[in-house]
């Protein structure tokens, strides 16, 4: 009758480790929001940034919010898209685009 004790102990250990991580995460959210996100938000306002600097390989991946829907296919109609990031990020929603 030892295996089930070990198993229950293991599950409790894993669950408490996960719970602790989630609690730690929750507390760091409020701390890092103040120390990191607020200054970054100020930066967005000061430099008038519109996009995150994640994919720098093409215009439409660097500034997805500023690009036209057809920018990935700008070379000629029905051209294949060149850049790998284009397959990772989703295309903008239809209602994001003004006519």
């Amino acid at each position: 009758m030892t295996k089930h004790r070990i198993f229950i102990g293991l599950i409790l250990l894993l669950a408490s480790a996960l719970g602790l991580l989630l609690l730690f995460g929750r507390s760091s959210v409020s701390a890092r929001t103040e120390t990191e996100l607020r200054p970054m938000k100020t930066l967005v306002g000061a430099l008038q940034l519109t996009d995150l600097s994640i994919w720098t390989e093409a215009r439409y991946t660097r500034h997805p919010s500023q690009a036209d829907r057809f920018t990935p296919f700008q070379d000629f109609p029905s051209a294949l898209e060149h850049f790998p990031a284009g397959s990772i990020m989703a295309p903008p929603r239809k209602d994001n685009q003004r006519p």
């Binding site: 996009d51 997805p64 919010s65 036209d68 990020m89 295309p91 903008p92």
Partner: peptide
């Protein structure tokens, strides 16, 4: 002209990081 509002920028990012799309889905 093409006006892009802040809410459209936010919606674009909500869509870009949607786990149900693109490579993430693959």
């Amino acid at each position: 002209s093409r006006p892009i509002s802040r809410s459209e920028i936010l919606r674009t990012y909500a869509a870009v990081f949607n786990w149900r799309s693109g490579m993430m889905l693959s």
